[in-house]
Amino acid sequence: MSPDSSPVRLHVVTGKGGTGKTTVAAALALALASDGRTVLLVETEGRQGVAQLFDTPPLPYEERRVAVTRGGGEVKALAIDVEEALLDYLDMFYNLRRAGRALRKMGAIDFATSIAPGLRDVLITGKVKEAVTRRHDGRPVYDAVVVDAPPTGRITRFLNVTNEMGQLARSGPIKTQSDGVMAVLRSPQTAVHLVTLLEDMPVQETADAIDELTKAELPVGSVIVNMATEPVLPVEELTRAAEGRLTGADLAPALAAAHLTGGPELAQALVAEVTEHARRWAGQDALRDEVEALGRPTIELPLLTGPMDLGSLFELAARLEDHLRTEVAAA
C-alpha cells in the first residue's frame, strides 16, 4: 500500500477486551511502515502493551523507534502520559508550562483528570491530532499514525468527547482545538478499525460500535477477525460430525491401520473431540456471515501458536499489508 494511494493517515484500532487489539494495532503499524515509510504507534491506556510486544523497556512520554521494516521504514511508539499531554496543552495555547509543572507538584493535574475523565480523552485525542498534522519542511512527519484505542464499549465517546467539549466553548483556544481535532477525526484521512473474534459477544459489540460510530459521523474502516482457526477436516466431514453422524465404528479402521491401541473407547473419545470441533467451526462460520453482513471490508488473521514475538507480528503484518493493497486496488 502506498500512502499516496489512500487518503487514510490516521488508523484507530478498537475491539472488545481480549480480542487482541493491541497486537493488531502493532502489526498494522508494521504493515504501514513497509517500503521506507515512517509510522507512529500511539498507546492510550497506559498498560505498556506496545513495549511488551516489541520487547523494549517501558515507553516514556516521547516518540521512540521500536522496529525497522522493509526498505528502511520504521515504527516509532508513544505511550501518552496524560499529565505531560496537559502540560503540552497549557504551553501550546497559554504559554503556561511552568505554571502547569507547579500544579503537577501540588497534585492538581492528577486530581483534575480523575474527577473529569473526559478531560483525559480530550488531551489524548488532541495529542493524536497533533501527530497526524505535524509537518517538517512542508511534508507530514509521519506517513501514518496508528492508535491503540480504548475498547469498543467506549470508543465513540473517546473520539467524540472533544466535539462535546467544543459545544460547551463558544470561542477561544478550547473551541479552536476542539474543532481542529474533530475536523481530522471526521475526515477521509481517518478510519476506525474494529477487531473481533468469531464469538457472539465480540461480534455483537462490533456491530453496536459500528452503529454508534456511524451516528456520530465517525468514519468506520475495516473489521479485523483476529485469531481465526482453520478446520482440521474437509467441509463434508465437518458437516457430518456437526450433525452427530460420525461414530466410533467410522474411525476404527483408521485407528487399526495406525496401530493405535485403545479400541472402541479411544474411537468414541476421538468422535467426541471431532464433534466438538465441528460444532464450534459451524458456529464460527455462522458468525462469519454476521460479520460479512456488517458491510465493511473484512480480513481474517490466523491464530498463531506460541508466544507473540516480533516475528509473529511481522507475519500478521504481511497479511494486513496484502489486505491494504486489495482495498486500495478496489477503491
Rank of each mutant, 00 (worst) to 15 (best):
E74T: 08
N163C: 00
A183M: 07
L90T: 09
T152Q: 03
D200L: 04
M165L: 14
L168I: 11
M182T: 05
L320F: 01
P264W: 04
R170S: 12
R245L: 11
V75T: 12
T133I: 03
A256R: 15
E236R: 08
A67I: 00
S312Y: 00
A258P: 14
H11I: 00
D143A: 08
I115S: 11
G166Y: 02
N163D: 11
N95H: 13
D200V: 10
Y89L: 13
V50I: 15
E62V: 03
E130S: 14
G138A: 06
G248W: 02
V122H: 11
Q268E: 15
V184K: 12
V274G: 07
T152I: 01
V147L: 10
L103G: 01
S5A: 13
R37A: 12
V147F: 05
P151Q: 00
V184A: 10
A282H: 03
P234G: 14
K16H: 13
A67P: 12
D148E: 02
D137K: 14
T229D: 10
P202M: 01
V232M: 15
A330P: 09
P188Q: 02
G36N: 14
G72N: 06
K129T: 15
R279N: 02
N160S: 14
V13N: 05
E292H: 05
R134F: 03
S5E: 10
P253F: 09
V82C: 11
A108C: 04
E199V: 04
G262N: 10
